Computed example of a mutant assay.
Amino acid sequence: MTLETIDREAITTAITRDGITACKGAFSVEWADAMREDILAAFEEASAREHGAVGRGPNRYYVEIHPEQLRGFVDIVMHPWFRAVSESILGPDWTVVELGFDIPFAGAMNQPWHRDFPAPVETYRDHRLTSLAFNLTAVDTAEDMGPFEIAPGTQYESGLDWKHQMFPDREEWSRFESLAQRKYPQRGDISARSALTIHRGTANQSEKSRPVLVVGVDAPGAGHDALHDTAVTKGYWAGLPEEVRQHLTARVVDTLTPITQKHDIEGLVMGEA
């Protein structure tokens, strides 16, 4: 797979129509297993300190990390499909503004239908997407593990009358359920979606956790970098390929400090009533 051989028209059609697309087998199973090791190590560290692991519902947590905490970070940003999607949807000056992971453990409940932040006018009025969320599963997803559920085509709804402009009223849930598609990614797969497409995590009825890496990417001016605090050390920054540095929004520091998360989605804390 190269940048030149990727079908960008198919990518653009899928994301602008459905709000989501995917690439099967982008990475090896062994690569995904190493990613899981890094995620679990970061979760152990984050859960031991205040505001390290943020609740996204019962037995479900989100943790932001720095690029140096993930051995495969450069592999992701350099991957031809990742770059082709980012450029096709967001333009040539796209930037990575967020790196984190979501873990629903055993007993995680259905989340309420939601989007991850209010829709900008460019999206609901002009149908132009200004950000993307890439997801990489750390396990092979099965039906009982609380798979991700999405309502395709809902990324352009304004949501101006929803709670926090993110949470549709319960009376509207049946509409999203009628559109809903469950996703069952396997280790090595990567997906890209608009975080404005209405979605939810479903109940994890297994005894396993389902860690998923999240990489947030912005078009110029989207502004989500203000919600995050990605940093890299001077040595790590110097060793990054130029193709990564030019697409990474991060503070360059002498020593990394743990991230205190700024983007807390309050409406997810209790899960579905």
Rank of each mutant, 00 (worst) to 15 (best):
V29Q: 09
V29H: 07
V29N: 06
E30P: 00
E30T: 03
E30V: 01
E30G: 00
W31L: 06
W31A: 05
W31T: 03
A32D: 01
A32V: 02
A32Q: 00
D33V: 02
D33A: 05
D33Y: 01
A34I: 10
A34L: 11
M35W: 00
M35N: 05
M35L: 09
R36I: 01
R36C: 00
R36Q: 03
E37L: 07
D38A: 04
D38W: 01
D38K: 02
D38N: 08
D38P: 05
D38V: 00
D38S: 06
I39H: 03
I39W: 01
L40G: 11
L40Q: 14
L40I: 13
A41S: 10
A41K: 08
A41Q: 07
A41R: 11
A42Y: 00
A42V: 01
A42S: 12
A42I: 01
A42E: 04
A42H: 02
A42C: 08
A42L: 05
F43I: 07
F43A: 12
E44I: 08
E44F: 07
E44G: 08
E44N: 11
E45S: 14
E45G: 13
E45H: 14
A46M: 04
A46R: 02
A46P: 07
S47Y: 09
A48N: 07
A48D: 07
A48G: 07
A48H: 06
A48K: 07
R49G: 07
R49F: 04
R49C: 06
E50R: 12
E50K: 15
E50L: 09
E50D: 14
E50P: 10
H51V: 10
H51W: 12
H51G: 13
H51K: 14
G52D: 02
A53F: 02
A53Q: 02
A53T: 02
A53D: 01
V54A: 09
G55I: 08
G55W: 06
G55Q: 12
R56Q: 15
R56L: 15
R56G: 14
R56S: 14
R56D: 13
R56Y: 14
G57E: 06
G57W: 01
G57S: 08
G57A: 07
P58W: 05
P58D: 10
P58I: 05
P58N: 08
P58M: 06
P58H: 05
N59E: 15
N59S: 13
N59G: 08
N59H: 12
N59A: 15
R60M: 15
R60F: 12
R60T: 15
R60E: 15
Y61E: 14
Y61I: 11
Y62N: 11
Y62A: 12
Y62V: 15
Y62C: 15
Y62I: 13
V63R: 00
V63Q: 01
V63S: 04
V63C: 04
V63G: 04
V63L: 03
E64D: 12
E64N: 11
I65F: 03
I65L: 09
I65H: 04
I65A: 06
I65W: 02
I65V: 14
H66M: 11
P67V: 01
P67E: 07
E68Q: 12
E68C: 10
E68K: 05
Q69W: 06
Q69P: 08
Q69I: 03
L70G: 09
L70S: 12
L70Q: 08
L70W: 03
